[in-house]
Design a protein around this nucleic acid. Structure first.
Lengths: 67, 67
DNA sequence: TTGAAATGTCAAATACTTTTTACATAACAA
DNA sequence: TTGTTATGTAAAAAGTATTTGACATTTCAA
């Protein structure tokens, strides 16, 4: 799933490691999500959105469309 | 994580099984999420929100973020 | 009251997410 | 250039989500 994490993280002048700490996950997890290796858990999605002062719906671009 | 799925599903007059089919998951998955056995994946959270005509941020109540 | 539909639950298997450790490269300032 | 910080990546292990099949209970309309 596409997301705006890298963009918003840079706007907030945070490194991947700093964002990771604020979200209580590892740097590798943030890196993998930014590079779309996999999607975060819902919990982590909320945590990242919160730290980046946005919402899950704004941060992630939902590809799901019925038909 | 708390959610409003059961409430909104009933408003939409859908059974767990019908909602499940619309989200391409099983009835047991919807049941488990409604009863908070575990959280859905981010993908499924978007899918459920979409089917129930709402947003992920409205549908789920994040205890840490508190929206 | 009866029967069907809906819901709750469980266990085993499979798939996906996160951590840990480690190493490589990139970016960048001194 | 040199050193430091930031980023990309990988593999193994642990943790979490989903499916499948099954059975029990609850709900509710006829």
């Amino acid at each position: 799933m596409k997301n705006k994490i890298k963009e918003l993280r840079k706007s907030a002048k945070l490194s991947q490691e700093e964002l990771a700490k604020l979200c209580y996950v590892t740097r590798q997890t943030i890196n993998a999500i930014e590079n779309e290796k996999y999607d975060p858990t819902l919990q982590l999605a909320f945590s990242i959105a919160s730290v980046l002062n946005t919402t899950v719906d704004e941060l992630f671009i939902n590809e799901f469309t019925k038909n």
